[in-house]
Write a protein that binds this DNA or RNA. Sequence first.
DNA 1: GCAAGATACCCAAACGTTTGGTCCAATCGT
DNA 2: ACGATTGGACCAAACGTTTGGGTATCTTGC
Lengths: 343, 343
Amino acid sequence: MDPQRPQVTLRMLADRLGLHVSTVSRALHAKPEEGRRAASSATIARIRELADELGYQPNPHATSLRTQRSNLVGVLVPRLSDLVLATVYEGIQEAARAQGLSTFVTNTKDEPDTQRAQTEMMLARRVDGLIFGDARADGALLAETAARGVPFVLVSRHVAGHTSVTCDDPLGGRQVAEHLLGLGHRDFAVIAGEPYASTGIDRTRGFLERCAEDGMTVPADRIVHSAFDARGGRQAADRVLDAPGPQPTALFAVNDFAAIGAMGALRDRGLSPGQDIAVVGFNDTPLAAELPIPLTSVRSPMHEMGRRGLDLLTRLLAGEPAPSERLAPTLVVRASSDRPPRS
Amino acid sequence: MDPQRPQVTLRMLADRLGLHVSTVSRALHAKPEEGRRAASSATIARIRELADELGYQPNPHATSLRTQRSNLVGVLVPRLSDLVLATVYEGIQEAARAQGLSTFVTNTKDEPDTQRAQTEMMLARRVDGLIFGDARADGALLAETAARGVPFVLVSRHVAGHTSVTCDDPLGGRQVAEHLLGLGHRDFAVIAGEPYASTGIDRTRGFLERCAEDGMTVPADRIVHSAFDARGGRQAADRVLDAPGPQPTALFAVNDFAAIGAMGALRDRGLSPGQDIAVVGFNDTPLAAELPIPLTSVRSPMHEMGRRGLDLLTRLLAGEPAPSERLAPTLVVRASSDRPPRS
DNA sequence: GCAAGATACCCAAACGTTTGGTCCAATCGT
DNA sequence: ACGATTGGACCAAACGTTTGGGTATCTTGC
């Protein structure tokens, strides 16, 4: 279309139409009230037409400089190669686009130093607000950031005192316990995720609470922390299974990938997931349904979480109240946990 | 630290030091030659000190407006929730940060309309260059974009006439064939991925070529296209396995997730991957090694591909030559294909 | 026919940088 | 000692917008 990228500016339009640049700006910018006062509707039409013809695109840097608003939001996640956060981010981005915002996203690997550095970097880029997908339970960085007056919301994980949109993780945990108890399981193990992530903490807590309601308690050495990936899950499962004494009949991993890793560990011991030991994951990753042994999992609305997160942020930016949200999970039972424990 | 985000500007520094804003700019900006001519080293030190103390961060919008360079690069991928592209993007971002660049990334879902719209959107955001991770074999959009004088490179997939950094996919395919032929397999099926992606095309081609060298040919109905995910892989495998006649003894999926889906399809038929039928994937996803039946796969340097892609782009932006690169794959043999076919 | 009010514009400043010029004083070569 | 050089800084314009205020011209009410 264009010959060689000669960017069209307001001045070009103005000159070509014999108008002042400010007139053109108003004509293109303000639809409702301002527009009327700025130019005749005939002129506005002329301006619009030429703008379309030449493919005018406002220079966002000029706009941001003038308005002191970048229409940029920064997103921090542990890692984008984690499907869960990648999906959340897709939701964020989708909502952002709908609002005319753009997003920067960056990995922090759950390392506090990196989180801090990347937050700083986002602010240097003059984002209007931030979305943290990697909040740590202690919340030190968040407190600081809030004190600086930076608008932000949390997604996926929550921390008291900050607005967040999360899955109802305790409920999800309860649902898993309910399901397994219903099948007759009594001996559980939990692969609990990273100790600083509210997701793992809450899912585990919900699970244990529900167990407790049936008088069941899970021994401490059957609750092991782990990374949120297959390797982490395998290692955690190894620790549980290598312990002396009787084996659990059911295993709850707070993350699908950890569950897959755990299944591997089971297989290594000649145990068949779903037959010899029930396995349940969390998030209902697209993979879960397609695995050789389909994985029971709690569906969490990852995409939706991202969308709501961004919406909450824009509300915050508009000075409106932005109450935290908790989205409902749904248990999806599959072959990895569809039969009672072996006697 | 800061009270309430009063952004520090050059003028503030200048005023506080009794200097001119241009002097401050030069002192902070140019280290080597320009700096010397701008101010005495004592003054430079004073300026630097105050800048650090106040936490001066140049306003990128002002800079971009003035210099006509945004230090932004746009990245288009099919979807970020695809681990492969997410990992490539991590590499891109890492390299970008090292160069002081920031990246916008967006999903195009491999839909031509979305690709076009997102390209336009990136350009409207005034990115300096683009990285396409979603190039289509036909290359129509790329040709247009090139004609407009927009600098870009391709990663993961390649298209003739554009600079790209890819895995040596044909070689990867050959390695798989070599391995399977070596085990004595003769009846193959290939899950070939999307027909518009050079990755799948090349991996399949390399595989078939190596087979042909041993006088082996794979019937056309044993080569099926598929989406690059577990569901796609399962569906494709279903099609192969439901066909009448003898079953293949080995199955090559051009993507690990497709391979996982295929394993599920095998399981449904009572076939045990690795025992009854060899399965090989591609990319050596972190998941591959941790699966219940560890998956043989071709390791492709995804991260590295991203890094090199960005480096190539910066070279392009600097007006230097930027020849395409092809990174070497490595076959990693695991239990899913470590024994000869059943007689 | 005249003040008042729209209507349809234009003017100019400002956002925070960068950068080619200019200018003054000190230093230097001879 | 005098013109040439240079070191050290200032000046001003420009990048492309937005926006509070003007200023003509045209209606309108009476």
